[in-house]
């Protein structure tokens, strides 16, 4: 009797949990949150709502929102033509090309190899797998300055790896190629960590079914695995790209920092600050911030898509 009355309750709780986790309603569509509040006025049983939300908003404003708004307020001191002048000066334009080009290249490399690493970690069992799995996060944990000097030392013309490349006529350290190497290192975990959980939930039977029905291995990969993994791959790409365009510490050691050639945009901001050109630094920062915000929106949408795809399978 008790069990029977409890069962529907539990089911309710489960569906509530599912609803709470569903990203499309909860996280990405503000409107729906508002609508739900209006449709179902909640009588709050638990205490502390006012205190915790109030503290959250005050702290968020003090540490993040008000300081960030300073960038936009400071830039408003510039007229529009003056802003364009600063933000599109030749040296700044060269830095955008390098920063966005190298970030794009590094994110592409990470999509290819990140997918490969995720695939190998999920599908194969080999000695040291768990150790390697844990070490994939190293770029998150290793301070960027340490990564910077290590990669520079390795890829310098006399370094372990750089010396191998000299006979081939390839220079990595102190060239744009060095920027690419540093950004590849920094972005490495993103694709692995977004693709890995999707591959884990992909039932092997689907591929086996495709093979049984006569698909070649390549066909079953292209038609079955790839469409499922695609949103996660794109999310990983966007995360790696977004991280790379703002990256500073690991790049400045290896880049050589030659104006017009190997100078990244964050370094332009730092250089302008050191010359007390606050408005100049801020104008370039606004360009980067706007692009970062757009990327953040894209990433949110991609993550929602990933979870929908994954949810459809589970």
């Amino acid at each position: 009797m008790t069990a029977r009355t409890l069962a529907p309750l539990d089911m309710d709780a489960d569906s509530a949990r599912v609803r709470r986790l569903a990203p499309t309603t909860e996280r990405d569509v503000m409107r729906s949150a508002g609508m739900r509040g209006a449709r179902r006025p909640v009588r709050r049983v638990l205490p502390g709502f006012g205190l915790s939300l109030g503290y959250t908003i005050v702290y968020l404003s003090l540490i993040v929102l008000i300081p960030l708004s300073a960038v936009f307020i400071k830039t408003a001191e510039l007229t529009w033509p003056a802003f364009i002048d600063v933000a599109t000066a030749p040296r700044v334009m060269a830095s955008y090309r390098l920063t966005f080009g190298a970030s794009f290249g590094a994110a592409v490399i990470n999509v290819v190899f990140g997918f490969l690493v995720a695939w190998v970690l999920v599908r194969y069992r080999f000695p040291g797998r768990r150790f390697i799995d844990a070490l994939v996060d190293l770029p998150f944990a290793l301070p960027t300055a340490v990564a910077g000097i290590a990669l520079t030392g390795l890829f310098a013309p006399k370094g372990w790896l750089g010396a191998q490349l000299v006979p081939l006529g390839i220079k990595v350290a102190f060239t744009p190629l060095g920027v690419l190497v540093a950004l590849t290192f920094i972005g490495l975990p993103f694709v692995v960590r977004t693709v890995q959980p999707v591959l884990e939930t992909l039932p092997r039977e689907i591929e086996e079914a495709a093979t049984t029905l006569g698909a070649s291995r390549w066909d079953s990969f292209r038609r079955v695995v790839f469409p499922v993994v695609l949103p996660a791959l794109l999310t990983g790409f966007a995360l790696a790209f977004a991280r790379a365009i703002g990256e500073y510490g690991s790049v400045i050691f290896i880049a050589g920092n030659m104006p017009m050639v190997s100078e990244i945009t964050p370094l332009i901001i730092v250089t302008k600050l050191e010359q007390y050109d606050y408005t100049g630094a801020t104008a370039v920062a606004v360009v980067m911030l706007v692009i970062s915000f757009l990327l953040l929106l894209a990433i949110n949408a991609l993550q929602a898509w990933t979870r929908r795809r994954q949810g459809a399978l589970a």
């Binding site: 968020l60 703002g246 953040l296």
Partner: peptide, 23 residues
């Protein structure tokens, strides 16, 4: 708790991750 603007709040909390350390 549920309240309007929750997903906006979550996005704003994530904001510092999208900002370059230099900025």
């Amino acid at each position: 708790f549920s309240f309007p603007g929750k997903s906006l709040l979550i996005t704003l909390i994530d904001l510092p991750f999208s900002v370059s350390p230099v900025i």
